[in-house]
Amino acid sequence: MQKYAHFKGLTIPLLLLLPQLMITVVFFYWPASQAVWQSFLLQDAFGISTEFVWFENYRDLFAKPEYYKALINTGIFSFFVALFSLSLALLFAVMADRQIRGAEVYKTLLIWPYAVAPAIAGVLWIFMFDPSLGMLARGLQSLGVNWNPRLNGNDAMTLVILAATWKQISYNFLFFLAGLQSIPKSVIEAAVIDGARPMRRFWTIVFPLLSPTTFFLLVVNLVYVFFDTFGIIDTVSGGGPSGATETLVYKVYSDGKGGTNLGGSAAQSVILLAMVIAMTAFQFRFIERKVTY
């Protein structure tokens, strides 16, 4: 029995794929290849002459301590955002899955942050934590915490982590909730009869059964933190104070801004691209092998 419709020849399949292929070419392959090309070029300060320099831009990059700082910042930033957004989302999903009263309202509310544009999310958090205006910042100050993300690098990092986490929770929540609801009720009931108390049940049954979801979300979150947090960082801290919140993707922007170091900026984006490709490839391999049961 034939399960799929089969087309004769290539014309129709190609025609059907064309719109998607064109979008991919125009918005991905073209800019990506441009970036690769740019990363091998060096422009003089006035943008008059351009020279092909092979890997000099990359060599420059790895010679600069700022680049390592941005790398470390990205590491800290992504670790905490992934940790907080995954664990909080899982906690919320477990609670929503218990079908508490008003679960629908609760679910809808949790999904809202995802619909908020990054820049607006950033502004929101700036307001709440603004040292002179923000109510949360004042609360902190009244508790004796000397809170000032504009001057203190750690405060600034905390703030961008909070903002980015808040935005990502909804997405993770949806996936965790779907994952929880796909676990058959009778499996949980069998564990109840088998004498597993709630905490043990969670760690020995629920969590392992969610591991494909968790792993998928981990990679998605890392990709999110690597690329998509630009808007939040730009509005919340602008990479400051003195580069304390400058991540790899933000550095691509600030180095390329004004066209002062286009080649270096391009080299950075090529490295980022390679990292994400590696993560995605790793995810596919891993999902195929280990996490499935």
Binding site: V187, I193, D194, G195, S211
Partner: peptide
């Protein structure tokens, strides 16, 4: 209890499925 859909723990081996209740 034996369930209609068996409700085995999909991520555990047959041995662990049977041992789970005793371990708990």
């Amino acid at each position: 209890m034996v369930f209609q859909n068996y409700a085995l723990y999909p991520h555990m081996s047959v041995y662990d499925n049977m041992a789970y209740g005793l371990r708990n």
